[in-house]
């Protein structure tokens, strides 16, 4: 077992619960019909995002997908800006013009949220190449799912990243489903990480529900990338415990798989680790209460904020676009 110091464990726990409580709140607001937007649930994948983001500095870059709430909140987008953007309000990170599927917040390194499966990897290479050329020491992490690993751009990006030893980490969150299709029905190989050797790249397979596997693997990959030793493909095995998006049918997920997901749930596992490291239940509950209060305030502000007006249509787009 790896040793993660207590301060870092608390940091990872806090980020994990921020992701989880945000997810729970979002689903509650959707169920009540209080907000009506697309949302891709991250229940079951909280730890992977949180532990991965904990290995980065604020300046490091992240490219994520529409199921990117975990990376976005764990990397530190302020709650009030994040919620306002999701609700399409002018007070959001992108003035309400990005929405849940296109959140960008460079101040914390969230450079792109893509809405197209597999499209983030070449973009990450571009960011990493810029860092390499500029010598700014930044590392780029691109998060994607198992379905994205079968897109052509995945292979192109992997080859190029290794060829140029780009400071990038490919983080595949293998949640066992590519949208509505089970892993075995869309992938010929047994694992994604094993493909790394085909590009001469370092590939690492970890249990995404185990903080002692995710964080050290991520830290090592980030350190290597920053030191000029090239990219790593990390495959974190995890579960998407809900359907593809809120409201989607997921009757195709067999009951035995749902039971397996419950057994492997990263949240009770992480809490057990925290208790073993002498954090008290009261201390952990207080962390969650603080997060809930912050989220409640952010949601209240976001609900009260204005939608962007029509005059915003031609602003923040290509210069010279017709008014």
């Amino acid at each position: 077992m790896s040793t993660i110091d207590r301060a870092r464990l608390l940091d990872i726990y806090t980020r994990t619960m921020k992701v989880n409580r945000t997810d729970e709140k979002f689903r509650s607001l959707l169920m009540q019909g209080k907000v009506a937007v697309m949302y891709y649930c991250v229940r079951g994948q909280e730890l992977v995002s949180a532990a991965a983001m904990a290995a980065l500095t604020d300046d490091d870059y992240v490219v994520c997908t529409y199921r990117g709430q975990g990376e976005q909140t764990a990397k530190g987008i302020p709650a009030e800006l994040w919620w306002a953007e999701c609700l399409g309000k002018v007070t959001g990170t992108c003035k309400g013009k990005g929405g849940t599927m296109h959140i960008t917040y460079p101040a914390k390194g969230i450079m792109v949220t893509t809405g197209v499966v597999g499209s983030g990897l070449p973009i990450a290479n571009g960011l990493a190449m810029a860092s390499q050329n500029n010598g700014d020491g930044k590392v780029t992490v691109v998060s994607f799912g198992d379905g994205a690993a079968n897109i052509g751009a995945f292979h192109e990006a992997m080859n190029m990243a290794q060829l140029y030893k780009l400071p990038v980490v490919f983080l595949c969150q293998n949640n066992r489903y590519g949208e509505h299709t089970a892993f075995a029905d869309h992938t010929s190989s047994e694992s994604i990480s094993a493909r790394a050797s085909g590009y001469g790249m370092r590939g690492v397979l970890v249990d995404g529900n185990d903080v002692h596997q995710v964080y050290p693997a991520m830290q090592e990959a980030v350190d290597r990338a920053r030191a000029g030793e090239g990219p790593t493909l990390i495959e974190a095995m995890c579960y998407r415990m809900m359907g593809h998006f809120f409201g989607a049918d997921f009757s195709y997920m067999p009951p035995e798989h749902l039971a397996e997901m419950q057994r492997e749930d990263p949240l009770p596992k992480l809490r057990k680790v925290m208790l073993e490291h002498q954090f008290s239940a009261e201390e952990l509950d207080a962390v969650v209460a603080g997060i809930d209060a912050e989220i409640d305030d952010a949601v209240t502000m976001a609900l009260a904020a204005d939608l962007p007006g029509a005059e915003e249509l031609a602003i923040d787009v290509l210069e010279g676009a017709p008014a």
């Binding site: 959707l30 009540q32 019909g33 209080k34 009506a36 697309m38 809120f246 409201g247």
Partner: peptide, 10 residues
């Protein structure tokens, strides 16, 4: 608390 029809997909 109100019960309103939720958005269930794109």
């Amino acid at each position: 608390s109100e019960i309103r029809i939720p958005k269930l997909g794109m």
